[in-house]
Amino acid sequence: MSDPVVIVVGNEKGGAGKSTLAIHVATALLHAGKRVAIIDLDLRQRSMSKFFANRAGWMHGNDQVLPMPVEPDMGDGKALARAGEDEQLARFEAAFAEAREQADVILIDTPGGDTLLSRTAHGLADQIVTPMNDSFVDFDLLGTVDPVTLDLLKPSIYSESVWEARKHRAITRGRGASIDWIVVTNRLAVAEARNRRRLEERMQKLAGRVGFRMGPGLRDRVIYRELFPFGLTVADLSSTVRPVSVSLAHVAARQELRNLMQALGLETGALDAPLDAAA
């Protein structure tokens, strides 16, 4: 079996929608027929783990069968968060080794901060997906701008950490190995923001300087949140799986997820099938 593709969803800020993006990519991959392993390194929140626990509960209560990922056991997250770095790293390495044996894709959700586990995961990535909110508040995750001219001054610490991960990968796997870094503007407001054009201009400049590419993210839609308690996403909706009434907004969200998967170079699977809104 060939080595699995390792996708790391990461940045060093909370509230950018990392877990939301991770669970949507995971479910879309599952419906595309991929064997997916998930590792949730946000030890305190464990949002991705909770999502798939909700999914198992919803399936049991509704006599439904949906694809599920493999999740290697790292133990109690809160206890592990209090443990030393050596123990955390040992647990992660064991989980990653188990995932490699069982999956086509390993999807790792990282916490909003600089931790040893997050840095280690970034160094293992084939692809890093960095969501950011649609504002200059989050732009400093990637780079520093002049407060007067808004000209780019320098890359951020996180950009430098991705650079370090790329160097580590080149050293350990050879110069031909590379990490595909894609930044997606997540939680977009439905209405056009006044500063969006300026933000995109500076992101384009920074992309060329530090080596990421830009892709479409997920808008700030209620439907992404309303399906979470069921452990479902718009990728799961079908004629038999409809825990809520399907509207045109769900159809648009499904296309939005399809666009994201295409930008990441991943299979779109069930997202290619039309989804009929309720009359």
Rank of each mutant, 00 (worst) to 15 (best):
M1A: 13
M1W: 11
S2Q: 14
D3H: 09
D3N: 12
V5Q: 13
G10T: 06
K13T: 10
G15Y: 06
A16P: 00
K18R: 06
S19Y: 00
H24L: 00
V25I: 12
A26K: 01
A26M: 03
A28G: 05
A32D: 06
K34F: 06
L43R: 02
L43C: 04
R44Q: 15
R46T: 06
S49D: 07
G57H: 11
W58L: 01
W58T: 06
H60R: 13
G61R: 10
G61N: 10
N62E: 11
N62L: 10
P72I: 00
D73P: 05
M74Y: 01
G75W: 04
D76F: 00
A79I: 07
A79V: 09
A79R: 13
A83M: 03
G84T: 03
E87F: 09
Q88N: 08
L89Q: 07
A90M: 10
F92H: 01
F96N: 01
F96R: 08
F96Y: 14
A97N: 04
R100I: 05
T120Q: 14
A121K: 02
G123M: 07
G123N: 07
L124T: 05
L124H: 11
A125D: 02
Q127L: 13
I128S: 01
S135K: 14
V137M: 13
V137N: 12
D138R: 08
F139T: 01
F139P: 02
D140P: 03
L141N: 05
L141Q: 08
V145P: 03
D146V: 11
V148T: 13
V148S: 12
P155Q: 08
I157L: 11
Y158A: 09
S159A: 15
S159Y: 13
S159Q: 13
S161K: 13
R166D: 06
H168R: 15
I171L: 13
I171P: 02
I171M: 12
R175A: 10
A177K: 02
V183P: 00
N186A: 06
A193N: 14
R194P: 15
R197M: 09
L199A: 05
L199T: 08
E200G: 10
K205T: 12
K205Q: 14
A207Y: 10
G208R: 15
R209A: 14
G211P: 02
F212A: 03
M214H: 12
G215D: 03
R219K: 11
D220E: 14
R221T: 06
V222L: 15
V222G: 05
Y224E: 04
R225G: 02
L227A: 08
F228G: 03
L232H: 09
V234P: 00
A235E: 02
D236H: 13
D236T: 13
L237K: 08
S238K: 11
S238V: 10
S239C: 12
T240L: 11
V244R: 12
V244Y: 09
S245Q: 14
S245R: 15
V251Q: 09
Q255F: 06
Q255S: 10
L257T: 04
A263I: 08
L264N: 03
T268H: 05
T268L: 09
P274K: 09
D276T: 14
A278R: 15
A279D: 14
